[in-house]
Write a protein that binds this DNA or RNA. Structure first.
Lengths: 237, 237
DNA sequence: GTCTATAGGCTGATAGAC
DNA sequence: GTCTATCAGCCTATAGAC
């Protein structure tokens, strides 16, 4: 997609199609994201990335100044995209309940589009030394869930809690669930597991429900029904 | 600890103290657990492990048939210990509320004793191809939290939910929280983060509370007070 | 059981042709 | 911008002395 430098005459005679430099970069970013998320930074030889991207491995050094540079570029784009999506959701949601639901579903959605992201995310936080260049995005993501908690308290949907607790509980279980999903599916497919694994939409619904009920102001048990339930301040204990 | 082959005469003249083979194995397991959890399997040269353990790197091959063998041995012991603890808790708890609290605190406790375990756990699940030899322990751990959900429903503390959803929500956020704690503390110490990070006991309490409230049978809002609250079967909706 | 020395494989980077 | 060829460094494993 998006090739703009095709020569006016015949298509290039090489066996593999000629591409934009931009397309090359893009292919490397994409292939790298997949492989790094599967095997971690140290587990991936640069040659494998080049091969999956369909380009020569020397191009990694040319375009990204080496393996580490490619990795950082991938991280930055992943974190930035996640932060941007969540912030967009926050701005669009009319109330906390909607914001919570959209927040949860954004994770599921992003996972569908880029299966490697949650794992990439997790691996990086695990590594301990967080890449300085992704810190702004990371703080932005934390900011969204913090404000979710604060907004919920303001609107009377939640009682007051440390917003960071909400953040870690939500994001932690989301990231864990989605980044381990491939392993679960594989294990289930091989018949290694003696029970049915929950699917992602059930999990998202569960998190939503438990958050709404778990954080409801005392004495109020909120309906979690999907119809836009008449919203009033709720009875007291 | 536990050295049984000390010679009858003078202590050995070597510069470093002579040790049991068992002590050597133990030192390697311990050093390996720390390093693998910090940097992942591929990120750790065998020499670093030997050095931290204070033994020669060739001993890794001798005792564990190579790097991979050491890694698997570490995984097995970590998973087995976790499973054993959780099962012990389950057997000892008098009711679901106690079991839940003990379950959560076991994670915090184990983290204090062996800081690398949650990360090791997470890295392994992330890798996708779960080591067959740890599968039994993994299933045992899942079994404990499954039965926690079932027991809670039986005792009227929880409403019915898919036990696996409870499992993933609890274990996911626990493992995430604890395995990222070192990174968080480091970031906070460097002043990179503009807010106070929650400590682990607050997080554990939050999870307990949100689970109790979130799963309470409809119409019942359980007190989460710590005094051993008079326990009756609980009112219905 | 432990250590030293070394072999052999693989990896990331780059010089230089195209 | 892209590719080929090459190289130096590191890493695991092991043979053999102690």
């Amino acid at each position: 997609m998006m090739r703009h430098s095709a020569p006016t005459t015949a298509p290039p005679p090489r066996e593999r199609e000629r591409r934009d430099p931009a397309a090359t970069r893009q292919a490397l970013l994409h292939a790298g994201a997949e492989l790094f998320s599967e095997r971690g930074f140290d587990g991936v030889p640069i040659e494998d990335i080049a091969q999956r991207a369909g380009v020569n491995k020397a191009l990694i050094s040319y375009h990204f100044r080496g393996k580490r540079g490619l990795y950082v570029a991938i991280l930055q784009s992943a974190f930035a995209e996640m932060a941007a999506r969540l912030e967009a959701i926050e701005a669009k949601a009319k109330n906390t309940r909607q914001a919570l639901r959209a927040f949860l579903e954004a994770f599921a959605q992003l996972t569908r589009e880029r299966p490697g992201f949650p794992t990439l995310f997790l691996r990086e936080v695990l590594a301990g030394g967080i890449e300085p260049s992704v810190l702004p995005s990371l703080l932005a993501i934390i900011g969204v869930s913090r404000r979710l908690a604060e907004r919920g308290a303001r609107e009377g949907l939640f009682r007051r809690v440390d917003p960071l607790l909400l953040h870690f509980a939500l994001v932690g279980s989301l990231v864990f669930f989605f980044s381990t999903e491939p392993a679960r599916l594989r294990a289930a497919a091989q018949g290694l597991v003696p029970f049915a694994m929950p699917d992602s939409s059930a999990f998202v619904r569960y998190l939503e429900e438990i958050t709404l009920r778990g954080l409801a102001p005392s004495g109020r048990t909120p309906g979690v029904a999907h119809p836009p339930s008449n919203r009033r301040k709720g009875a007291r204990a």
